[in-house]
């Protein structure tokens, strides 16, 4: 960050996402949500071990798409990316830590557990 302090940066300049990017993202979001909701109604999927990981994976994709394209972090100054991902990582680690502390998640460690 230190390197570009004196000159004006590239705030909102070059390659902005275009209308075609926007509607493609919208379609993908729509389709993923449709898949998620239908998975909920497919017993074979809903009861298998893959269900929770697949749901988390699909919603992570949606989350990332909105953040990267609609919130245009992909095109913006990298400062904004760190201002968002830093706190997001702390928040995610805290959440995971709390899940372990309240025994919602656990790791088997032989004698210790």
């Amino acid at each position: 960050m230190a390197s570009h302090s004196a000159t004006a940066g590239h705030a909102d300049g070059h390659d902005h996402p275009t209308w075609s990017t926007y509607w493609k993202i919208a379609v993908i979001l729509f389709v993923i949500t449709a898949i998620e909701v239908s998975a909920f109604y497919i017993p074979a999927w809903e009861t298998s071990w893959i269900y929770v990981p697949s749901m988390l994976f699909l919603s992570t994709i949606k989350f990332t798409l909105v953040v990267m394209y609609y919130m245009h972090l992909k095109y913006d100054h990298k400062l904004f990316r760190s201002l968002f991902t830093g706190p997001l990582i702390v928040a995610a680690l805290t959440l995971i830590g709390l899940m372990f502390l309240f025994s919602k998640l656990s790791i088997r460690l032989g004698l210790l557990s």
């Binding site: 400062l79 904004f80 201002l83």
Partner: peptide, 19 residues
């Protein structure tokens, strides 16, 4: 950085909202 202060502030705010 040649960026607008308000935009930095809103991203900081959003980071805080994550918590």
């Amino acid at each position: 950085l040649g960026l607008d202060n308000r935009k930095i502030a809103i991203w900081t705010f959003i980071g805080s909202e994550c918590m």
